[in-house]
Amino acid sequence: MSSVSTVARAAQAADHDRQCLLCEHRCGVNRSAGELGRCKAGTEARVFRHRVEHGEEPQLVPSHLFYLSGCDLRCAFCIAEEKAFDPRIGTLLDAPFLQQAIVWGRERGARNLQWVGGEPTIHIPAILRALSGCRDTPPIVWKSDFHATPEALELLRGVVDIHVADFKFGNDACAERIAGVPRYVEIVERNLFLARESADLIVRHLLLPGHFECCFLPVARWLAEYLPEIPFSIRDGYLPRWQARHHTDLAAPLPADIGPLARREAAMLGLNVVG
């Protein structure tokens, strides 16, 4: 269970409203003054969907997912499409809304509260403010692109019980071309080590068509070398959405044989495959 005061953490996180260094774009904008960085988020967070879901990794379900609009990446294949990228969309996240939603989710069997996006990292101050005004919160799951700064992850230490890291790309060229983000691999790898120090960790990888050699294999081999015991969730349900049609490699569904092939490869590498 969460072990630190979210009130104290919310106070610390407020610094980023004035100079935002939550993600590795490190824009440094004063969101309190109305300035916008790459993610275009202000100081408020908005929930464009929340519901109790059973499609997550088996050890997480039933999980009450809160989808926050706004993201620091621009993945061409994002299934949430514009809702992921426009932080003005959705219902304002505040303590009364969250408290009511937590009760609703618990009544439906949710075993945890999971922050997803878009990307929750860009909304850490607003999330902590909302959590600090709630009673009897369930365990917190943090589903993230792991493009956070170490400063942001430190704010989550003791608050988050389980990190779910989306390790999307196995090399910087694919990350730059598909998600518009530089230095991707070193940032995610660093953050995986940091997150593991403070909470349970699940690494998730969505298999992309045509990216078995360049993305899946480097991710799997790195995990096998450095974090072999960490639950590794291989997702093979890719469908072309959002801007994927503009990328020839992403414009078709994942071939049916790639998922089993990836799982066999991961098993041979000794990985702890789940999901």
Partner: peptide
Amino acid sequence: AMTGDDHSPSSAPATRTPDNQPS
């Protein structure tokens, strides 16, 4: 496990749970 309700799932088209989710 959470609710105690029983069910009897059978198994055969393959299903994929939500994947290219944001973040």
